[in-house]
Write a protein that binds this DNA or RNA. Structure first.
Lengths: 172, 172
DNA sequence: AACACACTTCACACATGTGTGAAGGATCTG
DNA sequence: CAGATCCTTCACACATGTGTGAAGTGTGTT
C-alpha cells in the first residue's frame, strides 16, 4: 500500500508543478488550459499522449483538452500523429528544438510590435518629440529582435556544448 | 477652419495609433488602460502630463487614469513629479534608458520562469524523461536570459552608434 | 449492419477583470 | 476660513473569456 500512496503523492506533486509552470506560461500570454496541457506533456514521462490520457492525467473534461491541443498544435508546440489501426490521435511534444520554435513565435510578436511602432513613426515624423521617441523604440525593437534571433540560432551548439561538459567520459 | 479640422484628423490618427500600439502591449501582458496611457504618453509631443491631460487626451474618465498611472509608476515606466505651488501631480515618461528598464522587468519574468522549471527538475530528477526535458528547458532559459541581458547592456552604445550614423556632420 | 468508443462541437453557468459615475479627501485661491 | 478644483476611492454594470455537460460525428469492432 505504501507504494500506491507514494505514487499518489508523486502525481499530486507533479500536478502542483504543472499548475506553477502553467501560471508562468499564462503570464507570458498563453491561455490557461493550453498552458496546463503543455506543462503536463513536458513534465510527465511519456513522449506521446492521447487526448483521453491528457484529460485523465490533468483531471479535466475531454472538452477542455480538445480546444487546448488545437491551439497548441496551431502554435507548433504539439504535433498530431495517427497510429494506423487506432481511433485516437496521438499528441507528441517533439522536444527537438522545441524552444527554438517557441522563440520563433515570440520573435514574430516582437516583429508586430516593431511594425506598429513604425506606423507611428510614419504618422508623426521625426520632427516631433513623440515621433523621435517612437523611432528610438523601433530601433531598440529591431536591435533586440536581431540579438534574440542570433541567440536562438546559437542555442543548439551551446546545448551540445553543455551536454558534452556534463558527460566528459562519453567522448568516444 | 481647415486648420482645426486637420488638427482633429491628426488627433484621431494619433488615437488610432495609440489603440494599435496598446493592443500589442496588451498581448505582451499589459493591462488595457496602462497600455493606452503609456502609448499616448510616448507618442504625444509633451514630455510630462497631468492626470487630467491624460484623461482628456485619451477621452476616458479620470478614474481610469488613476489606476493606470499607479500601475505604470509601480512598473517604472512613469515617474510621478510635483511642481511646487501646483495641485496636480505630473507624470513624466523619462525616456532615458526607458527600454532598458522595460527589459529589466521582462528579464525578471524570465527568471521566475527559470525558477519554476528548476523546481520541476528537483522534483523529477534527471533519470526520467520529463526531468530531462525540464532540465534542457531550464538551460535554455538561462542561456536566453544571459544573452538578452548582454544585449540590453550593449544597447546604449548601439543607440549612440546609430544616432552618430544618421548625423554624420555633427562630429565636433 | 449495428454497436461501442473517442473525440469534437455547442450552449451555458461561472469567474475574472475593466471602465464609469458618484462620493470623499486634499490642496490652492480669494 | 469658505470655495473651488483636481484627484482618488468605491461600488456597480458590463464585457470578456473559461471549463463543464450534453449532443453530434466519425471510426473501428463484432
Amino acid at each position: 500500500m505504501g507504494t500506491a500512496a507514494a505514487g499518489d503523492d508523486d502525481r499530486m506533486a507533479l500536478l502542483r508543478f504543472v499548475e506553477r509552470f502553467a501560471l508562468v506560461l499564462r503570464e507570458a500570454g498563453m491561455a490557461p488550459m493550453p498552458a496546463r496541457v503543455f506543462a503536463y506533456a513536458l513534465a510527465d514521462d511519456a513522449d506521446r499522449y492521447t487526448a483521453g490520457e491528457l484529460a485523465r492525467g490533468l483531471d479535466v473534461s475531454p472538452a477542455a483538452i480538445s480546444g487546448a491541443v488545437r491551439q497548441l498544435v496551431q502554435f507548433g508546440l504539439l504535433v498530431r500523429e495517427r497510429e494506423p489501426g487506432t481511433r485516437s490521435d496521438l499528441y507528441v511534444l517533439d522536444d527537438r528544438d522545441l524552444w527554438s520554435r517557441f522563440m520563433a513565435a515570440e520573435l514574430a510578436t516582437l516583429q508586430r510590435f516593431e511594425d506598429a511602432v513604425t506606423g507611428g513613426v510614419d504618422l508623426l515624423g521625426l520632427d516631433r518629440p513623440g515621433g523621435r521617441r517612437l523611432a528610438e523604440t523601433r530601433d531598440f525593437m529591431a536591435f533586440l529582435r536581431a540579438e534574440i534571433d542570433g541567440a536562438v540560432r546559437r542555442w543548439p551548439a551551446e546545448r551540445d556544448r553543455l551536454a558534452a561538459g556534463r558527460r566528459p567520459a562519453s567522448t568516444g
